[in-house]
């Protein structure tokens, strides 16, 4: 539902552009017939209302239209084979998912463990040190962290390559190695967020009277955490994870650019620079969809893990 409204917002935003797409595509020197032909081709002569629904319909069936750059290329070279936006995005989308997956695999367990530890030993030296470190890494721009990592892990001690030029048919190990630096950069940012939120959630929980009650029943600290705190902490922690994976989506753009990682974020930025509207539109919708989906997952999961809602009166 939200997604439909969002698609409408994106569509309106894009169509608020002055002038003519067709003109923009062909450049100043195009003949009137050519412009008209393109207009017809793109359906620009149709009313907005109609265009929105064709676009939306196309989205749903996987037809994302044709990129302007491709079209321009094709018309100049006189070629006939147009590569659709979908074909352009699909492999890059897989790459981005791979990067996000690697990041999540490192960040989630790391952040949750650190968060729980910081909450357990709150106000200790360990807690304060992690607090300062995470605050610093949250506040730093992604590209700063990226360059620091490049400096230490690629240039000074060549552990990982600084350019992530992955391509199809690459072995998993090699692909993982090349993805490592961008994934680590994202991990730094996401872990910090996740850890802080986990810590806050756990501290909140440990202050509740039923935890005090469990301690007053003479139950071992380990059991208090595992049996009494964890089932109730699940909802907030799942929520935190889903929210941060959603955050990953934004972070991915800058990081992909820094490491020249051929993902959807980089395609997006490139298209923004050359004003390739169909690609921008499609990427935007994909990002928004992923974002909304993750937020939705967070809501659903936290409802599912809440005992009050699982066992109604």
């Amino acid at each position: 539902m939200t997604l439909i409204v969002v698609s409408l917002v994106i569509f309106i935003a894009v169509n608020a552009l002055p002038g003519d797409f067709a003109q923009a595509v062909l450049g100043q020197g195009a003949t009137d017939e050519a412009v008209a032909a393109i207009r017809k081709d793109l359906g620009l002569d149709q009313p907005y209302f109609y265009r929105y629904f064709t676009w939306l319909g196309g989205m749903l069936t996987g037809d994302l239209g044709v990129s302007f750059a491709q079209m321009n290329f094709a018309s100049n070279m006189g070629g006939t084979q147009l590569k659709g936006v979908l074909e352009q995005i699909a492999p890059r989308f897989m790459n981005t998912m791979f990067l996000a997956g690697v990041t999540a695999a490192i960040a989630v367990p790391f952040a949750v463990i650190l968060g729980v530890l910081a909450a357990l030993y709150r106000n200790s030296v360990f807690d304060r040190a992690t607090n300062i470190t995470t605050l610093t890494s949250i506040s730093s721009p992604e590209f700063f962290l990226a360059y620091i990592l490049i400096l230490f892990l690629a240039v000074l001690n060549p552990v990982f390559p600084s350019l992530s030029n992955i391509f199809e048919g690459m072995g998993f190990g090699e692909r993982l190695e090349k993805t490592m630096l961008p994934a680590l950069t994202l991990t730094l940012v996401v872990t910090a967020h996740m850890m802080r939120m986990t810590r806050a959630a756990i501290i909140n929980l440990l202050a509740s009277p039923y935890i005090e009650m469990a301690r007053l029943k003479g139950i071992s600290p380990m059991r208090v955490i595992v049996v009494h705190a964890l089932p109730n902490a699940l909802a907030p922690i799942i929520n935190v994870i889903a929210l941060n994976l959603a955050y990953l989506i934004t972070g991915v753009v800058v990081v992909e650019v820094v490491f020249v990682y051929p993902g959807i974020g980089q395609l997006f930025v490139d298209s923004v620079k050359i004003r390739d509207i169909p690609v921008v539109q499609a990427c935007c919708l994909i990002f928004a969809a992923a974002y909304i989906l993750l937020n939705l997952t967070a809501d659903v999961l936290s409802i599912l893990s809440n005992p009050r809602l699982r066992h109604p009166k």
Binding site: A13, V253, V272, R275, C284, A288, Y291
Partner: peptide, 18 residues
Amino acid sequence: AIPALIFALLLMTIASVW
């Protein structure tokens, strides 16, 4: 519902035409 940076980039594209 649209990630901030993505939305900003989209609008900036449009603005750069305007």
